[in-house]
Simulated assay, not measured.
Amino acid sequence: MNDARSSNENVIVAEGLTRVFTGRPQRGSRLRRTRHVAVDHLDLTVRAGESVGYIGANRAGKSTTIKMLVGILVPTDGRVTTAGLHPLRQRRALARRVGVVFGQRSQLWWDLPVRESFTILAAIHGLSAAQERERTAELVEMLEMGEYLATPVRQLSLGQRMRAEVAAALLHRPELLILDEPTIGLDVLSKQRLREFLVAQRREHGTTLLLTTHDMGDVERLCDRILVVDHGRLAFDGTLDGLARTVGARRELVVDLAVETPDLLDVAGTEHVRSESGGLRQRLAFDPQRTTAARVLAAVSERVEVLDLSIEEPDIEDVVREIYRATR
């Protein structure tokens, strides 16, 4: 069943949202209290059905923003509504309409089997036994969790646990799913499974997605719109294509070659970054707006046998720095 929500309404509205942390000086110290502005008069909206990447360097204010959106932290100033509700005053009602996954924190019961955690969470959200069975079966199939459903959470691999965490957050079919670094530490296959699942959830249920990540692969494959935050302020709001045009973000194709090869300096659409091991490994940077990894690989393969390859995405911190250079 497709229960996609209308895109005419705003799921998140923040106006002048601010959070200041104040630290106490050590006893006996004459120093004044420290003051750190984590989020600085932030204005943002997220429409129903959007998939938004909220990116920035470490300590940029991403997690602090999310905690204010769901009522964990009290804003120092400004206003915010999430799913039309006040996150603090209506936190219990909000919990029924929002799912949240923090990559470094678990909402599952560590010593219980995954299935029992789902049963408890279903009861908390007011699902009937029939609804819980139906939804659990759907999520287990889509996320391929059948083989470890009876396994205690503490015995799961990181990839297995993150799939279970996402399933738990979606058990009650929330209209908004907030993911804070959901793929951190995951291997390539686990990332791919999770990304495919999230795309399917948006397609089938119209789920609104707000994603913070350091992985540009997540941004490219999951997000329609990009918000870049730095020092608590919004530095960019637009599409991935617009971001790439602003910063000239490039990928690197890393190729392992069968024989030592002179620097590949004239491959169309690329810039040779460096060679390693006497030319057995070479790095070629390219702009994904102008060419593709497949074309670059084909051009290299015409000259020399390629044994292995990988693609490295631009670093989030580098992207943020380039945005500020481009907009100043």
Rank of each mutant, 00 (worst) to 15 (best):
R59C: 05
T76F: 05
D77K: 15
G78S: 09
M68E: 03
A60G: 03
T64G: 02
L69P: 03
G61F: 00
V74E: 15
R91P: 06
T76Y: 05
G71V: 13
G78P: 05
T65Q: 03
A83V: 14
T81Y: 07
L85G: 07
R79F: 11
T76I: 08
T65W: 00
R79N: 10
R59L: 06
L69V: 06
H86K: 09
L88M: 15
Q90F: 06
K62L: 03
D77L: 13
I72G: 10
R91G: 12
G84P: 09
K67F: 02
T65N: 01
P75W: 04
G78C: 05
T76H: 06
L88Y: 07
P87R: 08
H86Q: 15
D77C: 11
S63P: 03
L73C: 08
S63V: 02
L73H: 13
H86P: 13
D77Y: 14
R89D: 14
R89F: 06
L88G: 12
G61L: 03
T64K: 01
T81H: 11
D77T: 11
A60K: 00
L69G: 03
Q90E: 15
L85R: 12
V74P: 08
P75I: 03
G61V: 01
Q90N: 09
I66Y: 02
R91C: 11
